[in-house]
């Protein structure tokens, strides 16, 4: 491709670089700006007087003696006890990922190794389930959950998120298991293994790349979910995302917008680290579904 690039006329190369640079700014600038601004006071980040205050931090200097302040973070994490929401998110994500990978691996493996027609229908059903907006299901949960006292617990939310996650997990693991040659477990079965033993001793050692990729997407779903967590959790065990939404209602009136800004930046950091370490897996996961067409 390098040779082809050299043959491009100058104006075209300039256009390509210009376009890429524009997109880069569009994609990255909002995040950089917000991270920078989260260390300022509100009058700097939302400056009526002069927008450059957000860069230099005039008001922050006047108030705290330095251009940076951690007041927003203190307010969010200590005063508003955002760490509770952080731990709740950690618990939900951990259990959602573990449970949905365990049952999804078994199901996806079965789908990839059965040659009967019903696997096709199961996959289509999963696709239809995937297409349904989660919010349409929430109305169906509330009444039974209230009746049976299941509402408001982290465990309920975890199970619901696992179930909503299953269609996608099945599709993804199905296509990963398809890539593992069937001869592997067939030969184990010839040697006298049952199907489960073949899975346990032959497939499990080689399945990790696909499982890790799928796990990343399960994590993202649980981490980013707003609808289920905001409708099924009580105020005292909210996760981060519904808590940020709740901040909006209260902080605008109390003048603590910077708490919300700090909370937003805090909640973005784990995702940032995730992309940094697992970029390759995320890219391969996004394309895994596409390869099948």
């Amino acid at each position: 491709m390098a040779a082809a690039a050299e043959r491009r006329p100058v104006w075209m190369r300039a256009m390509i670089y210009g376009f890429v640079a524009t997109w880069f700014i569009l994609a990255a600038f909002p995040f950089i700006w917000t991270v920078w601004g989260s260390f300022k006071v509100e009058l700097d980040f939302f400056s009526i007087a002069d927008w450059t205050y957000a860069l230099t931090g005039e008001r922050t200097k006047a108030e705290y003696g330095s251009a940076f302040t951690d007041a927003g973070y203190r307010g969010a994490w200590i005063q508003e006890e955002f760490y509770r929401n952080f731990f709740n998110t950690a618990i939900v994500c951990f259990f959602v990922v573990c449970t949905s990978l365990t049952i999804g691996t078994l199901g996806g493996y079965a789908l990839s190794r059965s040659s009967y027609n019903y696997t096709f229908w199961l996959l289509i059903t999963a696709l239809i389930f995937r297409a349904m907006p989660p919010v349409t299901l929430v109305a169906g949960y509330l009444l039974p959950f209230f009746q049976w006292n299941l509402w408001g617990h982290l465990a309920t939310t975890i199970i619901v998120l696992v179930a909503i996650n299953q269609p996608f997990t099945l599709w993804m693991l199905h296509s990963f298991f398809k890539k593992i040659p069937q001869e592997l477990d067939e030969s184990a079965k010839v040697d006298g293994c049952t199907q489960f033993q073949a899975f346990r001793h032959v497939i499990i050692p080689v399945m990790w790349p696909g499982v890790i990729t799928t796990g990343l997407f399960s994590f993202l779903l649980a981490y980013n979910d707003f609808v289920v967590t905001s409708m099924l959790l009580e105020e005292k065990n909210r996760t981060m995302v519904p808590q940020i939404a709740a901040f909006l209602g209260t902080t605008y009136t109390e003048g603590n917008v910077m708490f919300a800004v700090a909370a937003v930046v805090s909640a973005t950091v784990p995702l940032f680290i995730l992309v940094m370490f697992f970029q390759r897996q995320i890219v391969s996961g996004l394309t895994a579904g596409a390869v099948k067409g």
Binding site: T102, I103, G104, L106, G107, Y109, A110, L111, R113, S114, S115, Y116, L122, A126, F129, M132, T136, L137, V138, A139, G140, Y141, L143, P144, I159, V160, V162, A163, I164, Q166, P167, L170, Q195, F196
Partner: peptide
């Protein structure tokens, strides 16, 4: 894969989807 084996492998995920996706649709209806 035999039907029986398939059934046991697929059962956990099927239960999850039936209880928390299929049943709520009926309940919503």
């Amino acid at each position: 894969m035999k039907h029986r084996t398939f059934f046991w492998f697929f059962l956990p995920t099927a239960i999850a989807m039936l209880l928390f996706i299929a049943a709520p649709i009926v309940s919503v209806l």
